[in-house]
Design a protein around this nucleic acid. Sequence first.
DNA 1: TATAGGATTGCC
DNA 2: GCAATCCTATAG
Length: 196
Amino acid sequence: MKLSRAFFNRPTLQVANDLLGTYLVFGKDRRTLAARIVETEAYISENDPACHAAPGRTARNRHLYGRPATIYVYLIYGMYYCLNVVTEREGFPAAVLIRAAEPVEGFADAKKGETSRLLNGPGKLCRAFGIDLTQNGADATGTKLFFERRDGSSVAAAVSPRIGISKATELPWRFYDSQSSSVSGPRRFNEAARLR
DNA sequence: TATAGGATTGCC
DNA sequence: GCAATCCTATAG
């Protein structure tokens, strides 16, 4: 079943953890794309130096202040888009970055073997889904782009520091499925976190 | 207006 | 190790 706005209106760390094992669903043109989320990161408030809300409200980050389940998309390095879903109460800037997933439905090359590498990074995930600024500000409880819980397996969740940032690098706000081969980043990140 | 740097990726 | 590529935030 579809994840409700109430699901996202909770502490961001909890949402980031609980999103593991749920499905991202996107109706693109006439087909449906779906993937099982295996890696997320939390970005929380103007007091988190790595969060885009750190400078306060700006034109770019305005959707971070929106109601829970709002989609926040931005362009990074002039080349890749990153997909976030806003958490906590309206007016409190926080979100979960969707970093990696396993293709489940609708991906053309999902049967060619290299399925585990198709969505293993936030930029690659958006590219494969066809997500760009068109989705910025969208409502993730609607019919076009949403999150869904399906029956089945539990997730062996692990945590580690967030990847690719230069500030607040010590906070263990990255969550991932330790059993998945679709997790992003150098292998050592995952191994090191597993040994904690 | 100018400039440094970025929640990345893939190639050298 | 590092370039690609362009938008954002901040300083001048």
